[in-house]
């Protein structure tokens, strides 16, 4: 959008609290949402019934986030919503309006894998890789709040993420190594 003279260009005008309140009490089948995903602002019209995971995959093209079930069981769709791990198949995109989202695509920085990603690679924390984005995001949120976890705590933390390949051993190991690596930095 064009910058007005004498004013700094901003991404988009903020909605005022009053306008927002008026908007908020009208049920609507579609809604305009504004989200920040991996640091980039996005604005889009979404159908109310669109689940966040399909907004990320189909609208934004961020297909790193996977869908593995219909029952909120597998955790393959895990992303961070305002810093907290959520199953993005069990949240509507409209609910994420004004939120900050981090997906697996946001982990690597400047072409450099995140220590968690490196550790999964080095420790064989994945085989087919289907569960990996969810595992990484769950582990990322977990290590933020518990940087020095015990093995038991790691196992509890990933208990909402199913892996059909690895038997979990190497995933736990990878998270342990990543924790050490991150603490040493």
């Amino acid at each position: 959008m064009p910058a007005r003279k004498g004013k700094r260009a901003t991404a988009a005008p903020r909605r005022t609290a009053a306008r927002k309140a008026v908007e908020a009490v009208q049920p609507a089948a579609r809604q305009r949402i504004r989200v920040t995903v991996n640091g980039h602002p996005y604005e889009a019209d979404v159908e109310a019934r669109t689940l966040l995971v399909y907004f990320l995959r189909d609208t934004l093209g961020l297909t790193g986030t996977h869908v593995g079930c219909d029952t909120t069981s597998c955790g393959a769709c895990t992303v961070l919503l305002n810093g907290e791990a959520v199953k993005s198949c069990t949240l509507f995109a409209v609910q994420a309006d004004e939120a900050e989202i981090l997906t697996v695509e946001g982990l690597a920085k400047d072409g450099e894998l995140h220590p968690l990603q490196k550790a999964f690679w080095e420790d064989h924390g994945l085989q087919c890789g289907f569960c990996t984005p969810g595992m990484l995001m769950t582990a990322y949120a977990f290590l933020m709040e518990n940087p020095h976890p015990s093995e038991e705590e790691i196992r509890v933390a990933i208990s909402g993420n199913l892996c059909r390949c690895t038997g979990y051993m190497n995933i736990v190991k990878a998270i342990q190594h990543a924790a050490q690596e991150m603490a040493a930095r």
Partner: peptide, 12 residues
């Protein structure tokens, strides 16, 4: 699977 269409509202 997708939910049937509905209207969404988030009162404050």
């Amino acid at each position: 699977m997708f939910p049937a269409p509905f209207e969404y509202v988030a009162p404050s």
